[in-house]
Write a protein that binds this DNA or RNA. Structure first.
Lengths: 225, 225
DNA sequence: GTCTATAAATCGATAGAC
DNA sequence: GTCTATCGATTTATAGAC
């Protein structure tokens, strides 16, 4: 049971990260400034250092929160009892919807690396969540025998030991060819969402919603779902 | 024939953009500073304003140069007399190679949008070049009847009028289903390159070169090349 | 076209009073 | 845990001499 002191601390921490997210939208991650956050909250800049020892720690908090929010959205969208194609489409749409609702956080997670900042190991579990969901969809399909073999045969050793468990789990029907396909699928979803969000489809695609559904359906068919 | 004055101006302009590119690698686009460029060149900061009226104009120059360099690399890699699959692989590898050789410029072109900066129309022709090359590869294959029909049927109206000419050109065998496939292909290549470059495959993929070739081959097969 | 000088800001981080 | 004050740096952009 949290003490009153801890509750207050948690609340102020939340106000700080909220203000930081607003600032993120305005000036971007590279220019995220503790002073501006403090100004917005009416605090002295030095007071923030009691909550975050440095600017990078605040950035890390935002990154982990972002990965967790996106990962939770993807997990919530996946109904393991549904058909593989439906699961796939639901997860893809959830990823895109989250990205559109939080474009600046998405850019923080998946855009250019922030110069001078290197993400600590703490971010890894949160960062993996979406990949795990997509890996599970493909893995379940493979285990059910619903996924055709890769045309190029097996691809042993392409995926690291660590990633094997994450990308669909272990099963005789699951080789690295399937896991590479899962990575390619996730990369393609990410590429499609990012292209749209970062403005590279402006002028080429007439209807973003229709285009996305069409592209993801096409992609699913290509993958064999 | 350029006067001596013009030659000197062109040379100094080149030195400025070179220094700016070096700075880009260190601090990123958002923190690109005219003063730091001037310092590196041993010039007064105010002198730079005779070459670039503002920081954004310098940024625009870097972006156009980057798109042009990448586009030229993609065009040089495409041999129109080769087989579709070989053309595809060659272009994909060229894009990845350029990205790896110029990671910070790639991030400037395809990473997070720079806050407070909006690219002028001048950048569009250069930005389109890679897409044109990939569109031509798929378009040529479609015209030769070597591209299977999309499983989902035609997709009329998904691609804008403007983009139609760019993505493979006009031909009875070329409908918007093919053009959407070209956009999806380009998005997937971009997603794969960016995932690797931005560090999202660290710890999951053992051998980047092998993974990329495998992924692009798989993708080509999916597309029908 | 390049220089010095300057205006009017910004920043991260710390010291020390309370 | 919040404040003031401070250090030592940064920036864009302009004015005006030469």
């Amino acid at each position: 049971m949290p003490t009153a002191r801890e509750r207050v601390r948690a609340e102020i921490t939340g106000e700080i990260t909220d203000a930081a997210r607003r600032q993120l939208a305005e000036v971007g991650a590279a220019a995220l400034s503790l002073r501006a956050v403090a100004r917005e909250l009416g605090m002295a800049s030095s007071a923030l250092y009691r909550y975050f020892p440095s600017r990078d720690d605040l950035l890390t908090r935002l990154i982990i929160d972002g990965y967790d929010a996106l990962g939770a959205a993807a997990e919530a969208a996946d109904d393991p009892t549904a058909a593989p194609l439906d699961r796939w489409l639901a997860v893809c749409r959830a990823v895109r919807a989250w990205a559109h609702a939080h474009p600046h956080e998405y850019a923080l997670l998946y855009g250019s690396p922030v110069p001078g900042y290197s993400a600590p190991q703490d971010t890894i579990p949160a960062a993996a969540r979406v990949g795990v969901v997509l890996g599970r969809v493909l893995g379940d399909a493979a285990r059910a025998g619903a996924l055709p073999d890769a045309a190029g045969g097996d691809a042993p050793g392409l995926v690291t030991e660590d990633a094997r468990a994450v990308l669909g789990g272990e099963h005789p029907a699951l080789d690295d060819a399937v896991r590479v396909r899962a990575l390619l699928a996730w990369s393609s979803v990410y590429g499609t969402v990012s292209f749209e969000l970062f403005g590279h489809l402006v002028g080429s695609v007439a209807d973003g919603d229709r285009y996305f559904d069409r592209a993801m359906t096409e992609l699913a068919r290509m993958i064999g779902l």
